[in-house]
Amino acid sequence: MPEFKHQIEVEGLSTWFGKKKILKDITCHFKDNTVTAIMGPSGCGKSTLLRTLNRLNDLVPSFKRMGNVRFRGEDIYGVGSSVYDLRKHIGMVFQKPNPFPMSIRENITYGPKLHGTNDEDDLEKIVESSLRKAALWDEVKDELDHPAPNLSGGQQQRLCIARALSVNPPVILADEPVSALDPISAAKIEELIVELKKDYTIILVTHNVQQAFRVSDQSAFLYLGELVEFDETKRILEAPHDERTEAFITGRIG
């Protein structure tokens, strides 16, 4: 097993959709057990960067890539690496809550079943522990067989987090996970993210500076596909080195 310092390391990454260059030569690494926020105005390539980390962009036929992304020291785009196994180790939470149209229980057991857990007792334990970690257990423990789409928006999003946790990935990618929610639900999710960083490496895309400040330890600021700054959140927000970062933080671009 290769040596690695960080769960995910990105080196010289450039990506294209067709002829359009989205990411320009990005190099960074994401520290374990921290929340790293990727900030930037709309269309700067935040989501593309995130989706390159779990190879979800592979589905877009015109997607092209140069440079390396290493997960636990191994090149995820390398020959012989299994994209399915990779995605099992890197969970993802999406912008809008997207529970599967099945029961709450089935939503959680879907992932483990795919990867070969079929024992009822094991599945039951996974359901409970995942929901507990997502702070949803107390609210839904009596209605596990109800359809998941009947939950409220905030509950749905926490269910999606629980679903991502169900296969116990060391890394979780979150693509603006609260932007579609009301402020109270959003606050709960933010709390949850801070809570989860004890056990997981979390990469959070956001265009909300306040949120990045509240939640994250590290921040990356992307502008037009370039990685402008990458440092501790506090440092970036208090004393940005680059004027583009400052413009974004003070609300002049965004």
Binding site: R72, S82, Y84, D85, K88
Partner: peptide
């Protein structure tokens, strides 16, 4: 379920 620490899987 998956004792292997890496994510490599036979093709």
């Amino acid at each position: 379920i998956d004792p292997r620490p890496g994510f490599r899987e036979a093709r």
